[in-house]
Simulated assay, not measured.
Amino acid sequence: MYPDIPIRDWTFENVSGGTTGEPVKFRHSGKFFETDQGAKLLFDEWSGRKIGDYQIRLWGSERDIVSGKKDWMNKIYRWMRNEVFLNTFVMSEDVIKKYINVINETKPKMILAYVQSIMEIVKYANLNHIEMYSPRGIMTSAGTLDEQMLEEIQKVFKCPVFNRYGSREMGDMACSCNKNEGLHINTFVSYIEVLDGNYESCNLDEEGQLIVSLLSDYSMPIIRYAIGDRGALSSKTCTCGRGLPMLKCVTGRIIDFFKTMDGRIVYGDYFTHLFYPCTNVKQFQVIQDAIDHILVKLVFFDKDVDNKGFYFEKENEIKKAMGEGTKVDFKIVDDIPVSKSGKRIYTICQI
């Protein structure tokens, strides 16, 4: 027997993040909403948050925070989930200090955050020797969480850090657990493939582009959707015993991969590792606008510091990866705006 599927049963329109261009519109049914909320509750439980526990959400999308006529619905939903949204669309020094005070004073059981948003708070707390309240857990999303970032967040907040993978159009697809051995795939509603450049299946543990299918939406099925991310399926199962197939890693957006003159590929995370530890760097963005040219935009905490040695060191480190023939320019700016989806893009390949 086939399920009784309503024809064109859709309840709301959604859009993709639009990180790399114009957002794509989707239609979602109530079934999608139900299953996605179930995934959120499940992943929350893994991170130590029970239903009704107070949560702070460091989120950067204006669409999630200010939604016009539907704003009253979002307010009711947040009240029911006992969530407080802190808008990280603009993270000035004053805003960061305010949010640190909110976290320390209200003591949330859990923090759900954009990766770059929590990292800006971590960096500011480290720089100013601020002691942070320790929630039961921190869940990061909407960005690549590497081991260095995870360790820095754990060091400042002194709590477990979990990594969630999802998207606006697909919902929550995978999440790490307390074992941190990869991301459990939400196979109840998601199917994930990893394909190479010829659209052939990659071997387990082999990195390729992620192709995703949504199994829970009857109004507008999304099948074998090239979501624009790269990652690898794991050959191992997690020792937690849950038994779900695993994503070994999600390594980032396809646009994060830079191209060298000799045909190599350099992952954008190489550049984030160059600039994240720099205490005087408030914001940065690395752009490849030609095969032989890298532009680095920088926002400094203190503009008066002599940075000649800094520029020389970073230029050499970039050339080690991209090739000695690469021209590197640095541009000091007052701010690096976030994208339409509220995320600050650290690395961009335009070729």
Score class of each variant (00 low, 15 high):
D4Q: 13
D9A: 14
W10Y: 13
E13W: 06
V15L: 10
G17Y: 00
G17K: 00
E22W: 06
V24P: 01
K25V: 10
F26L: 04
R27Q: 03
G30S: 10
K31L: 04
F32G: 06
F33T: 12
D36A: 08
L41I: 12
I51N: 09
I51F: 11
D53E: 08
Y54G: 13
L58Y: 04
G60A: 11
S61E: 12
E62I: 12
E62T: 15
R63A: 13
I65A: 08
V66P: 00
V66Y: 13
N74G: 10
K75W: 05
Y77A: 15
R81H: 08
N82V: 12
N82F: 07
F85E: 08
F85K: 10
L86E: 10
V90S: 13
S92T: 15
V95N: 11
V95F: 06
Y99A: 07
N104P: 14
L112Q: 13
A113E: 12
Y114D: 05
S117D: 06
I118Y: 01
I118M: 05
M119Q: 04
M119S: 06
E120G: 02
E120K: 15
M132S: 10
Y133C: 05
S134G: 11
P135Y: 00
R136C: 10
I138R: 13
A142C: 13
A142F: 05
T144S: 04
Q148G: 09
L150W: 01
E151H: 07
I153H: 03
V161Q: 04
V161M: 05
V161F: 05
N163L: 02
S167A: 15
E169D: 14
G171S: 05
C175K: 02
N178C: 03
N180P: 03
E181L: 06
G182P: 07
L183K: 09
H184Q: 01
N186T: 04
F188C: 08
V189K: 14
S190I: 14
Y191A: 09
I192M: 12
I192R: 06
G197M: 01
Y199M: 15
L204S: 03
E207T: 15
V212Y: 00
V212N: 03
L215D: 02
D217K: 01
Y218H: 11
P221V: 11
I227R: 02
D229R: 12
L233W: 00
L233T: 03
L233N: 03
S235T: 02
C238D: 04
V250E: 06
R253L: 06
F258W: 03
F258S: 05
D262H: 01
G263H: 01
I265E: 13
Y267P: 13
F271A: 00
H273T: 09
Y276D: 15
P277D: 05
N280W: 02
V281C: 00
F284W: 04
Q285D: 05
V286K: 00
D289P: 07
D292A: 08
K297F: 02
D302Y: 02
D304T: 12
D306V: 10
G309T: 12
F310K: 01
F310H: 01
Y311L: 14
K314L: 10
N316M: 11
I318P: 11
K319M: 04
M322Y: 08
G325F: 03
K327C: 07
V328L: 06
V328A: 08
K331M: 12
D334H: 07
D334T: 09
I336F: 01
P337Q: 09
S339R: 11
K340N: 09
R344D: 03
Y346C: 14
T347S: 09
T347M: 09
